[in-house]
Every structure is written in structure tokens, then in C-alpha cells.
Design a protein around this nucleic acid. Structure first.
Lengths: 164, 164
DNA sequence: CCAAATTACTTTAAGTATAAAATGATTTCG
DNA sequence: CGAAATCATTTTATACTTAAAGTAATTTGG
């Protein structure tokens, strides 16, 4: 405890340089990898990363998802999903229909062609990622997974502490 | 080595699930934190993250930087910086002038008001980040720094292997 | 020196992204 | 039951972002 000249408790401004540097490094890594994946997807398949990401979400489920589900999973705004889906329906990758039970809900899923296209892209994508992380040992990967899980939990706690 | 029915060497598709999961977790962490910082900046200072980031670059140097420097450091396209700078000059945060030695070059720097404004934001920003990473021990932070440095190096090697 | 290459930046077109307001459908609860 | 609240999505306005093409200034190599 530190006391100032008037003998009242004061907060010393703590140094958070390490956390800032950690955040910047985390951001740098993500930006770097994202940019790499982005240009590869464009070069090889003429597809954008957001479209690939959206298709990846849908590939995980056979019977489609609602727009809200996609929005939550991708952590992007609702309006964003609306536009993305529009273009992917237009290009024949997605199929969209209004739910029978609840007419507010739009269910989207990959078309046959869309799924085939995505699988092809995903297979290559997997190799790129493996190469990008190529210098990490299996132990490094495990450690990173653990520490990022802890980071995610910490950040989520912080985020919900505000909302709630 | 694995041989197929015609006794030719074939590549078994290796499993890169761990790397994919690592990448997705990295992305999730970044998106989560970025979103948090973004909404705080908007709420508290009515400023966008890209503007804050650009000002952060400029705060580090007293005599300004060229647009190209900013573009490289922020890892965004040239055209992107052009637009951002336009708006920040317009709002009085930035000062811009053509270099005397090389008339292609635009040097930008924070105005007095811009720097003061940024310092205020940066001080709070530092606290948010510290809180967001609050559950990590100092050892966790060190380990993450180390592993992310390794990740960054690995990704950079991969990226330049293509460009070169 | 001067044409060709490079560099710094801007512009364009298309797409991605957010926040906030609006719309329409479904639930809830008094 | 029916008004109010909630929910899913769309729309709007604005801003950010990229890739690629364009412009203008500087460097380079023959």
C-alpha cells in the first residue's frame, strides 16, 4: 500500500506493458495467417475468406442452420450475415428457406455443389494451415491450445461481465 | 512408407486436425478481444479501432511517418491507409504534408490535439487489455509470448517462401 | 542523358463490417 | 384473450478493406 503526501491511499498506475505486447503479438499472428489464407483462397479458388468461413460453419451440420446461429458462431453482426448469404445463394453455394414452424427464421444450408466445392477448398486449406504452423512441435501446439483456452475464458469472462 | 495395391508409394493424407483447431482458437481469441476493444472505444471515445490503431502507430514517433510505413506496420493495404488518413486529417487528429525531398511521399503526424486525445484513450485501453488477460499468470504471459513469437516466425517463413 | 523500371500514393469497384433502426412473427403474462 | 415484450431478420447509413489499375515522381542502367 502506498500513501501520498496527504496520507490517503492512492493507486499507483501499474505497468501493463506485458499484456499490451502480448495482445499486439496475438493480433499480429492472426493478421499474418489470415492474410495468407485470404490470398491463397483467392488465388486457388477465387473465393473470399468470409464466404469460406460461412461455408465451413454449414459444412459441420447436415440440415442447415439459422442466420442467427451463423451470426453467433462467426461472431459477426446479423446484417453482415444477411449480405453474405445473399451472395452465396446467388452463386448457387447455398440454399435458403423459411422455417415451417417459425416464419421469422431462415434456414440455410450448403447445396450439393456448394458442399463439394467447400470440401475441395477445405482439404487444401488444411495443408496450408499445417504448413503455416509447421515449425511448432506437437508439444508447442498443445501448450498453445491450453494457454489460448485460458485466454479465451478470461476474455469471455470480461466480456460478459459488461453485458450482464 | 505405405504401398498401394500396385506397389507404388502413395501419400497417406495426414491428420492436421490439431493445427486447424489451434488456428480456430487463435482466431476466436483475437476476434473476441478485438470486438471488446472495438465496442469500448466506440462507447467511451466514439472512435473506431482502425483510427485508434493508426494513431497508435503515430504516437510512437515524434516526427511522423510516411503512408507506406503506416501501411506496412498496420499490415493493411495502401488504399486503406489513404482513406483512414483522409478522415483523421478531416477530424483534426492528423497533420499531413508532402515531403520536401521526395514529392511522392506524404508525411503524417499527430496534431497536438490528436496526441492528447490518443494518450487519453491509450491509458484506458491499457487497463482493458490488462483486465481481458487478467486470469493469466505472469508465467502464462511469458509462455504465450514465446510460443506466439515462434508462431509468427513460422508463419512469416511460410509467407515469404511464396513471395520470394 | 533518357527510356524503363520502380516507388508512393490514389482511385475504383466490389465486398465486408458495424451499429442502430425498422419490420414482421412469436411469446409471455396480466 | 390481447397488449407488451421478445426474437429473427432486414434495412440503412457509414466506415473499413482489399485487389487491381492508374497517376505522378524518382531511380536506374545502358
Amino acid at each position: 500500500m502506498i500513501l501520498d503526501s496527504e496520507t490517503k491511499a492512492v493507486e499507483l498506475p501499474e505497468d501493463h506493458g506485458d499484456e499490451i505486447r502480448l495482445w499486439l503479438r496475438l493480433l499480429t499472428c492472426t493478421t499474418l495467417i489470415e492474410g495468407e489464407v485470404r490470398s491463397r483462397l483467392r488465388e486457388r479458388f477465387d473465393v473470399t475468406l468470409p464466404r469460406f468461413d460461412l461455408m465451413a460453419q454449414l459444412d459441420k451440420v447436415p440440415d442447415g442452420m439459422t442466420l442467427s446461429d451463423v451470426s453467433k458462431r462467426m461472431m459477426v453482426s446479423n446484417g453482415n450475415v444477411t449480405g453474405l448469404v445473399e451472395r452465396l445463394v446467388e452463386s448457387g453455394h447455398l440454399d435458403r428457406r423459411t422455417s415451417d414452424e417459425d416464419r421469422r427464421v431462415q434456414v440455410i444450408r450448403l447445396t450439393k455443389a456448394g458442399r463439394a466445392e467447400f470440401r475441395k477448398m477445405a482439404a487444401e486449406h488444411e495443408l496450408w494451415i499445417a504448413d503455416i504452423f509447421g515449425d511448432l512441435t506437437p508439444k508447442d501446439v498443445r501448450e498453445l491450445m491450453r494457454l489460448l483456452a485460458k485466454t479465451k475464458a478470461s476474455a469471455q469472462k470480461y466480456a460478459t461481465a459488461r453485458t450482464a
